[in-house]
Amino acid sequence: MRSIPVSAPDPSPAKAGQPGPLLAVEGLKVHFHTRDGVVRAVDGVDFQVGTGQTLGIVGESGSGKTVASLTLLRLAPPPARIVAGRVVFEGENLLLQPDKRLAEIRGRRMAMIFQNPATSLNPILSVGQQLTEILRWHTGVSRQAALDRAAELLTLVGISDPAARLRQYPHELSGGMKQRVGIARALLCEPALLLADEPTTALDVTIQAQILDLLADLRQRLSMSMVLVTHDMGVVARMADRITVMYAGRVCETADADTIFNAPQHPYTRALLESVPRIDHSYSGARRVLPSIAGRPPDLLHAPPGCRFHDRCPEAAPECRRTMPREHLVAPGHSVSCLRRGSPGEETP
């Protein structure tokens, strides 16, 4: 079975006593050992998702958000290696579970929808084969029962004439339809947590809105939690209860969606929000140019010492070049990782 190796599992059990959140990621580090060196794609990341909550993880390409989300199912591609941290889901640390247990959780308790509907369905199996196979594996129901359930789910995700669709192959469906099938596949066993990695990026704008509405509606109806990974601020604004902003493999800031949009603290979050074009702004006169963040995200093979954002940060101080900030709470439910906002730091070599 494909599961990323865990180098140094943290054996401490999930906190006993009070029930924890549905998902708690603590100090997660995922490194890629390549010929040229170690790529620290995810380098000490914490976040939590409560029951019924939607967490948006935003960041630029290469910020580690996709690897972080795949790691929740231990699925990042080789040569990924989990070198530290815990992923506690429904009270068990998934990084300690054997493959067999992991396979029971995948698709049944935690499921995933993918970015590109054109490539995430198997081209040579019919929709019905792909859906019933998963259902029968997890629940052991009969073929007919599985087909009925699959048709029911296709109806739920807004596909008409499900019986005919079940007999069709992916290439006979439109992009939006394929993504709906992908969503139906993830929801077959009514998972507690749905991971959505850029679920609308590959779709037309009008279809994007439909799929987002569908996800919002399904989340409500099935009282499901969701981790929504995206680079699109508009998508998280619409969907997320809480938002985690990632940059170069680390978390910059985590807060309620309102707080992130109205009172962001981290310089990167602020710069990111300023670079989103707004329909209520006039880009004439002094503000003719849409602000952008100067420079480019760091090459993670040669990550800069200190704060990873320092060389693009308008507020960088000399200490930011040497000292790596650690997340701290600036208000209840609002944590920031920035020396200029009072975060504690650790010296980096």
Binding site: M1, R2, L102, A111, N116, T119, I124, E133
Partner: peptide, 25 residues
């Protein structure tokens, strides 16, 4: 391919993923 990652993410066992999904392709 993505559809193989999707098959793993669905919790299918290695036998199904490799023989049914990957080998036929």
């Amino acid at each position: 391919q993505d559809y193989i990652t999707a098959a793993w993410a669905s919790g299918l066992p290695a036998r199904r993923v490799v023989l049914h999904h990957a080998l036929r392709n």
